[in-house]
Design a protein around this nucleic acid. Structure first.
Length: 112
DNA sequence: TGCTTGACATAAT
DNA sequence: CATTATGCCAAGC
C-alpha cells in the first residue's frame, strides 16, 4: 500500500497555501516542502490542474529564477504579475523577482 | 496499455 | 548568457 495519504496534488496545494502573502516560492521549493524532491514538474502540473476559483495562491509560485513561467494561455502571465504586485511583490527590470527578499523561507518544520 | 506532453530544475557545454 | 541534455511523474490521447 502506498505510504502517502491522499493525493500528491493535495500535498502540493497544502504547501502553496502556506505561502505567506507578499512572498513567493519556486516550484522546486514547493515540491521539496511537499516532500517530493525533484518533482517540480508535478507542481507545475498540479497548478495547471487547479480549478477556477481555487483558494490556492498559485500566483505565488514562480520558477527558480524568480520569473513567471510561460503558460499556455498568453496574457495569463500578466495576471499573475498583477496579483503579486497587489500583494506587494516587486519585480526587477527583466521581470524578475528578487528571491533574496521576496523568496519564502519555507521550512519543512517539524510541525510545531 | 504505451507514447507524448508539460505552470520545472539542475548540470554541462 | 543561451542552448542542450537528463531526471522526474501525472494526465491526455
Amino acid at each position: 500500500m502506498t505510504i502517502v495519504s491522499g493525493s500528491v496534488y493535495e500535498r502540493i496545494y497544502a504547501v502553496v497555501r502556506r505561502i505567506p502573502r507578499g512572498r513567493v516560492a519556486s516550484y522546486g521549493q514547493v515540491a521539496r516542502l511537499a516532500g517530493l524532491p525533484g518533482r517540480a514538474r508535478q507542481v507545475g502540473y498540479a497548478m495547471h490542474a487547479l480549478p477556477a476559483g481555487t483558494r490556492v495562491p498559485w500566483h505565488r509560485v514562480v520558477n527558480a529564477e524568480g520569473q513567471i513561467s510561460r503558460r499556455r494561455v498568453p496574457g495569463a502571465e500578466l495576471t499573475q504579475r498583477m496579483l503579486l504586485e497587489r500583494e506587494g511583490v516587486r519585480f526587477d527590470p527583466g521581470k524578475r523577482i528578487p528571491l533574496a527578499k521576496f523568496g519564502w523561507k519555507g521550512t519543512i518544520m517539524a510541525r510545531a
